[in-house]
């Protein structure tokens, strides 16, 4: 699904990613953990194609394509979804309107019929129930006046609408109380399937109690310094990030 090889990236001349290697197979759930400033969010944004970040070396293959050559919207239409750490507000544009335009842009790209208003409404209501989102949120402006938890749920609603091949969740758990976390996790879990992959970017182990990953990677100073299974996350939780960093330094 996704193959990242020796990826280097910089922001305003400052190196943030220093040689990331990552293989994500179909159906797999990977978690990337790491302390603040380790480059977790940069990795998520580079994969989605934000032009604020400059790729200085390496390559990324996504479903057989050279991902780094693709415009952000093409990446999205080919099935790469980023759940934003800070979802953006768009005043005056209803959630419904934006999602319909986006879903149909994706469908056009894939040579599928566009959904008409009725079909779309039926689909989105079904998906909104999945993340326990009240219908009035569909008619409100995108993320405007939403609480932190509502914004994150809205991201998962969008994820459910697009049914992406690869979902990158950038600290979707941050700022969520336990009930919201459960709802978000339930939404994500319902999308797990053998042909969809998920990359969870998180600071805390807590999310991984609800979305159990197949692989856990620890990121520090722009490099993956350790990989393992879900137990690595638990060990990390107990011993702290300094433990892996020291460990990596010694090795």
């Amino acid at each position: 699904m996704l193959s990242v090889r020796n990826l280097h990236a910089a922001v305003e001349g400052k190196a943030i990613l220093n040689g990331i290697n990552l293989e994500i197979g179909p159906g797999q759930v990977h978690a990337i953990m790491g302390p603040n400033g380790s480059g977790k969010s940069t990795l998520a944004n580079v994969l989605a194609g934000r032009d604020h970040f400059e790729v200085t070396a390496g390559e990324v293959e996504f479903r057989g394509w050279d991902l780094l050559e693709m415009e952000p919207e093409i990446r999205a239409r080919e099935g790469l979804f980023l759940a934003f750490q800070y979802p953006v507000e768009i005043p005056g544009v209803s959630n419904l309107h934006m999602l319909k335009a986006a879903v149909n842009a994706v469908r056009r790209h894939r040579g599928e019929e566009e959904l008409n208003a009725m079909e779309f409404l039926k689909l989105i209501k079904q998906k909104a129930a999945l993340v326990e989102m009240r219908q009035e949120f569909l008619y409100r402006s995108v993320n405007e006046g939403f609480s932190g938890g509502e914004k994150k749920r809205n991201e998962i609603l969008q994820m459910a609408m697009f049914e992406p091949r690869l979902s990158v969740l950038d600290e979707t758990d941050s700022g969520l109380d336990i009930d919201a976390l459960k709802i978000v996790a339930q939404g994500v879990n319902s999308l797990r399937s053998s042909d969809r992959s998920i990359l969870l970017v998180t600071h805390y182990q807590r999310l991984l109690d609800y979305i159990v990953p197949d692989f856990v990677h620890v990121l520090a100073h722009g490099k993956i310094i350790r990989s393992g299974d879900k137990d690595l996350a638990l060990e990390l939780e107990r011993k702290g990030y300094s433990w892996v960093e020291d460990h990596a330094g010694a090795a």
């Binding site: 604020h52 999205a76 239409r77 979802p87 934006m98 879903v103 790209h109």
Partner: peptide
């Protein structure tokens, strides 16, 4: 740039 990137990440072109 945030709003624009957000929309593009959902599959909309820059113009849209």
């Amino acid at each position: 740039e945030d709003q624009l990137f957000y929309c593009r990440q959902r599959g909309l072109s820059e113009e849209e």
